Simulated scan of single mutants.
Amino acid sequence: VRVGAGVAPLIEITGGFVGDLTVRDNVFLTAGLHGMNRAEIRDAFDEIIAFAEIADFVDTPYKHLSSGMKVRIAFAVISRLDEPVILVDEVLAVGDKAFREKCYKRIEELLAGGRTLFFVSHSDKDLRRFCDRGLYLDKGRLQLDDTIEKALAAYAADYGV
């Protein structure tokens, strides 16, 4: 079973993890569900754990991790997938500033490698950093599909921000 069929979701990033399983088991489960085979996961495992900076918690049940630690491990797994499209929905807001910047650098690497990013955010700064095209949605309806600057300007005009 391959989840996402070409899409790596960072929306509700921790949703697919199982609380009673250890971090190690969750890495194998989640990466496997997204199409990585056991050998690929074993090869990437140490890098995933190092990126997440949670080596001391590898054998800890996932449910005992803080929300920030859960995001760390989930991002580390999802960002290792070889999917052409990445969906990001402000999931990194719970991480500390240094780790968030580390994730943003990883996202920039993925973009430089030719990936497509759908980035949902209320942060003008983050949107400008990652996006050149903007889709401005209001009440579920597309208001504008244009440059990121024009989409941000339309949002600001409508909401006085």
Rank of each mutant, 00 (worst) to 15 (best):
R2P: 05
R2V: 11
G4V: 12
A5K: 15
G6T: 01
G6M: 05
A8T: 12
A8R: 06
P9M: 13
L10F: 13
I11S: 14
I11D: 06
I13Y: 10
T14Y: 04
G15A: 15
G15V: 01
G16H: 08
F17M: 13
V18H: 14
G19C: 09
L21T: 06
L21S: 09
T22R: 00
T22H: 03
V23K: 06
V23M: 03
D25K: 13
F28K: 04
A31S: 00
G32Y: 06
L33S: 02
L33I: 03
H34P: 06
R38V: 07
A39Y: 04
I41Q: 04
R42L: 10
A44G: 07
D46W: 01
I48N: 03
I49N: 12
F51L: 05
F51V: 00
I54G: 03
D56A: 15
V58R: 12
D59N: 14
D59F: 09
T60G: 00
P61K: 08
K63G: 10
K63P: 07
H64Q: 12
L65Y: 13
G68V: 06
M69Y: 12
K70M: 11
A74R: 04
A74K: 10
F75C: 01
F75G: 07
A76R: 01
I78H: 11
L81W: 04
D82H: 12
D82R: 14
P84Q: 14
V88H: 09
V88D: 11
V88S: 12
V88Q: 02
D89K: 08
E90M: 05
L92R: 00
A93C: 00
A93Q: 02
V94M: 14
V94I: 05
G95Q: 07
G95V: 13
D96F: 08
K97T: 10
F99M: 09
F99D: 06
F99V: 03
F99T: 02
R100T: 08
C103W: 03
Y104R: 11
Y104D: 04
K105N: 13
I107A: 06
I107N: 06
E109A: 11
L110M: 15
L111V: 10
L111G: 08
G113F: 09
G113H: 02
G113D: 11
T116E: 00
T116W: 04
L117K: 01
L117S: 04
L117Q: 04
F118D: 00
F118H: 07
F119C: 14
H122K: 04
H122D: 08
D124L: 07
K125I: 11
K125P: 03
D126T: 11
L127N: 01
R129V: 01
R129D: 00
C131G: 03
C131D: 03
R133Y: 08
G134D: 01
G134N: 11
L135Y: 12
L135D: 02
Y136V: 11
L137K: 13
L137T: 07
D138T: 08
K139S: 15
K139G: 14
G140A: 01
R141M: 12
L142M: 14
Q143D: 07
Q143I: 15
Q143S: 07
D145Q: 12
D146C: 05
T147V: 02
I148R: 15
E149R: 08
A153F: 10
Y155R: 13
A156H: 15
A156K: 14
A157F: 10
A157W: 07
D158T: 10
D158F: 09
D158M: 10
G160L: 08
G160F: 14
V161W: 04
